[in-house]
Design a protein around this nucleic acid. Structure first.
Lengths: 336, 336
DNA sequence: GTGAAAGCGCTAACAC
DNA sequence: GTGTTAGCGCTTTCAC
């Protein structure tokens, strides 16, 4: 067990002054004489005095902690967003406490409870893929703790959020397919109660419309974002005779499952099927052929979410929606 | 700003009893009458009373926080280890505070300072690739804070650690190359002041010896683990006339740079060059051809490190070295 | 069976 | 210019 760290009391005793004198001297309070101030500061740095954050927190009613809830921390998408949040939090002198929901609504609720009990001063959340009810955020509101959603969001009139222009991204992807000659374009879509999945599907539809292509029941296929489920579904569709010319995948996990299955079936990308995914730079260029992808500014999403959160700490701040741009990066998977 | 959360005082006032009675009632203290206990607990749960962890921490001199320092949190290797740590920490009712060094020694030192100032009760650390002096861990010792290193370690006689059998893994990789017919086998090694790099190189040498192959100055190439540096070096070597039969890469970032360069130069894997990397399952099977790799039990490394840390919280615990096994998973990149 | 009081480390209002 | 005091939320010893 650690022996107690140096406290103000220790310094005061050593120097034969009162605790409050020490406290003031350390803050260069003008009342304190130069001589005392110097002696105090000298001893403090010699003994490596560090104020006890617990005591400070108790006094000021603040923990300088912000909580983050993500579906998982292992995926590049989330870990790089966390990284962005961390860099801003560090600037503000806050630390981050990470909790992962493992894509489970129940765990998400528990995480909320735990982080509130921990007295975080704010929350940054990406809801799980299961999350289709939103009452658990009432508690956050009751506690008057600011909360910022990112990517997968809800209750946007009440909470700030950072998202990307999913609609436009999907629309553009379709147009790119069209320009490259594809006509039978299919979207592997996600659960429609998730804003991101819905926006992407809507953008996809708009893209088809813009290109004068019909949207019918064969145009979109719904996956629940579980790897196994995706895999089975993909096998089903690919083994049918009529392959599409092009597929837009709703996210990175879907796109990589898709690539593996296409490879297994010796279906050539992009000759037989062109492919666009929502994916990050690192992974998109790792695979062969390199993947045309809709890139999220992940680090920036994290930074923005954190900035928004710190703005919300100011009581007269109003809820705000930040929408960032994605970039369609064209690579080999769509170049015929 | 959040209005104050419910405190014992609030409950006491409401119920016309003293604070200490409330405190005891909530813990089912036998002294307190059933009737009072019930009233207290009823009100507490109605008002969603949660003890203030700051006050508790101040009193008991504990934060229930453990600090983690990693080179980065974005890489799968680290994020999945963090995930393992988190799962154990959660079991023990601790939360984790993550700091990343960005592979910088200076930032690593700052992180140590910050986390100690935060009064974490323990530290789990993977040193940066720059770290070749170790005095900054003196402070941790002075503060009597338990510390567990993982993967990249130092001062093993003083601190516990979790590593993998790098020597044996590299040795086996060489033998596998040999069995597949390779004779000119090269190792892309890391900085030798890092234990992992040294152990892997040593194992590599042993592997050559076991197979009756010579080790000479062309057998190993040193990279500093920076992507750009690796890339340049690789281009240099690959553009020379005499290509090796097989390459063992010291880690995943090197192996993926290597794969990209080989692809760019139209050098076929495994026909022209066989390849083995230290890499994770997800990425190894994402690439084409799938990569024979030495897989780390990443989640388990995190779990073990955390368990070790919680054991070290017990003052009569002795420093311990845990070595986990890797697995050579054979895939297309070494199958001629 | 319950309450009062001290104390964890710190700050700030109030003495003097 | 410096000390005293109260109080942040909680537990625990000591009174009654």
């Amino acid at each position: 067990m650690p022996e107690r760290p140096i406290s103000l009391k220790d310094l005061a005793r050593e120097l034969n002054v009162s605790i409050s004198t020490v406290s003031r001297a350390l803050k260069n309070h003008p009342d304190i004489s130069k001589e005392v101030t110097e002696r105090v500061q000298a001893l403090a740095s010699e003994l490596r005095y560090k104020p006890n954050p617990l005591a400070l927190g108790l006094l000021k009613q603040q923990t300088r902690a912000i909580g983050i809830i993500v579906p998982d921390i292992v995926t590049f998408f989330y870990s790089s967003i966390i990284s962005g949040i961390e860099s801003v939090a560090r600037e503000f002198g806050y630390y981050i406490v990470i909790a992962s929901s493992n894509e489970s609504l129940q765990k998400e609720c528990e995480n909320i409870e735990n982080l509130l009990a921990l007295r975080v001063e704010g929350l940054i959340v990406c809801i799980s893929r299961e999350t289709n009810s939103y009452e658990h955020f009432d508690k956050v509101k009751d506690n008057k703790i600011p909360l910022v959603f990112f990517d997968r969001v809800c209750r946007q009139s009440e909470f700030s959020s950072v998202t990307v222009n999913n609609f436009e991204a999907a629309r553009k992807a379709v147009c790119h397919f069209y320009e490259m000659g594809a006509r039978r374009i299919v979207h592997f879509a996600g659960p429609q109660y998730l804003n991101i999945a819905k926006e992407r599907l809507d953008g996809f539809k708009q893209g088809l419309a813009d290109c004068g292509l019909p949207f019918n029941e064969e145009s979109a296929l719904f996956v629940n974002l579980e790897k196994q489920h995706t895999q089975n579904l993909i096998r089903g569709i690919l083994e049918k005779k009529k392959l599409p010319d092009a597929i837009l995948a709703v996210n990175d996990s879907v796109v990589f499952v898709l690539m593996k299955e296409l490879r297994r079936l010796k279906i050539n990308i992009p000759k037989d099927i062109a492919l666009i995914g929502f994916a990050d730079d690192f992974h998109a260029t790792l695979v062969e052929p390199e993947l045309t992808s809709i890139e999220h500014p992940t680090f920036e999403i994290g930074e923005e979410a954190a900035k928004l959160l710190f703005e919300s700490l100011n009581p007269k701040f109003n809820v705000k929606q930040v929408v960032l741009d994605t970039k369609l990066v064209i690579r080999a998977s769509t170049l015929k």
